[in-house]
Nucleic acid binder design. Structure first.
Lengths: 269, 269
DNA sequence: TCCCGTTGTGTGGTCTGACCACAGCAAGGT
DNA sequence: ACCTTGCTGTGGTCAGACCACACAACGGGA
């Protein structure tokens, strides 16, 4: 890998040099300072004009680099003056990942089934870790979310909010910000594409109840420190939420035929 | 969540409206066409000038939107004329994710341990799927990579190449492009930060041999369709490669004290 | 007729210089 | 002591110009 002669006889393919564009050079300079620890979360970058002058490039080039950093979730920009104004380094991988996954989902680069499968991989680990390490205090917000799901006459949108809070909270229990970011991204991008299907559920009340019970079961297993049971409960839950998506796992199934979300699945080639 | 009155008495906090910037509007228009399927991989966008005119904005605004799409890995731009020139939609989530994870790693938003843990979550699923579904033909490239790792006097850089090829190939067996993208991103970003440590290994030859044997064991288990053994072998491998990183899993350990990569670990708060 | 420079045209890449809206802050007036 | 009023610096936006590049059509020469 990396050499030419891919087998088709001709040894051409000398292209991929691609002279670096100046905004990429700007990006590199900033990345260097980030990697070296010179720039940290909360720090302010010099103003666009000043940075352009310092680097010897034009302001548009600097701005394009800014946009990339913003797309990576490490920068926000505020107008005005004062301490909060300007370009400030942040760490918001969740939002950035959401955009990325969402766009690729739209491009059909991923199928919904792929995203759900990845979610299963992430969440399984989160649940295992939580069952091993979480104590009662950590679980309080999750318990609260589950309790609120049982409120009579709950709006579907509100249920979604709580559901997201529950699952992101689960990821947070792992203590791993990368997993939290993935979970956030997966939730929001799937939400955009599957919300409509959920609204069309035949018996929403029963569905909500079943899903809420799933949550409670996951929580109870974590509370007992029973990782295996927690993972099984999670598996049941995901199968219920995405019945048409084959995640292909060997773990035990639960009731199986639940009130489903009804999301389309892609054929595998 | 989402309401004001955070508890500090005053009910201010009416800020987060944030007038959308014009490049974001451009982004939305393009995203719409992507989500609707009107734009697909391989399609060309109108030229920057033309697009600016069509949307009634300036060219810099269009360009900033382009940079974001490029950062998401859905667009590449080529100068010149002809069929390959212009802005073309692609699906390259791996490169985009690499930049994202790498930058956040530099910002210490993630620790190396977090990344390795996420890798474990992803790769475990990939290996399980592979053990269940892969046939001999699918495994040929992996077998080749392992064989080449045994070449005498192999350069460390070459070993890294083969190692990456092996693990990315493992992810490809899952048939899930999202997992492949994650794997690619994790490999490249970890590589940037850990390559130095690997070069400082005390006994490189023995280490390479041990890691290669790990690969062979994983492969053999997949070949036998034994998911459990494959996962255990993977676990052993990762523990050997990142001995100082506690991934915290209950599965069986292997020889334990292998020649390590020697990567630092973050304290958990 | 065929080949091969030449020129044309459209692409992204870059720069300059200007103006706007906004938010904070300091100087001034009340 | 308070409020008003500008000043200043921030990002956001725009118009217009020029460059390097690469293909494609043209035209002259063999």
């Amino acid at each position: 890998m990396g050499n030419a002669t891919t087998g088709d006889g001709q040894h051409s393919e000398w292209r991929p040099v691609r002279r670096t564009r100046t905004f990429e050079a700007v990006l590199d300079r900033i990345d260097e300072r980030i990697a070296s620890g010179e720039l940290r979360v909360g720090d302010r970058l010099p103003g666009e004009r000043q940075l352009a002058a310092l680097l010897g490039v034009s302001r548009p080039s600097v701005r394009e680099a800014m946009r990339v950093l913003e797309a990576r979730g490490v920068l926000t920009a505020q107008t005005g003056s004062g301490p909060d104004a300007g370009a400030i380094l942040v760490a918001d991988p969740g939002r950035a990942l959401s955009g990325l996954v969402g766009t690729h989902l739209g491009l059909s680069a991923f199928a919904l089934a792929d995203v759900v499968e990845a979610r299963w991989a992430i969440e399984r680990l989160a649940v295992e870790t939580a069952a091993r390490e979480a104590d009662a205090a950590d679980l309080a917000p999750l318990r609260k979310a589950v309790a609120e799901m049982r409120a009579p006459g709950l709006e579907l949108a509100a249920f979604h909010e709580l559901d997201t809070a529950f699952h992101v909270g689960l990821a947070e229990l792992s203590g791993n910000p990368l997993l939290v970011a993935f979970m956030t991204a997966i939730r929001t991008s799937v939400h955009r594409y599957a919300a409509r299907a959920v609204e069309e559920m035949t018996d929403t009340a029963a569905g909500v109840t079943a899903l809420t019970d799933d949550h409670a079961r996951i929580l109870a297993a974590i509370e007992d420190g029973d990782a295996e049971r927690a993972v099984a409960a999670l598996d049941t839950h995901l199968r219920r939420a995405y019945p048409r998506v084959d995640r292909g796992t060997g773990t035990d199934t639960g009731t199986g035929t639940g009130t489903g979300t009804g999301t389309e699945q892609r054929e595998r080639p």
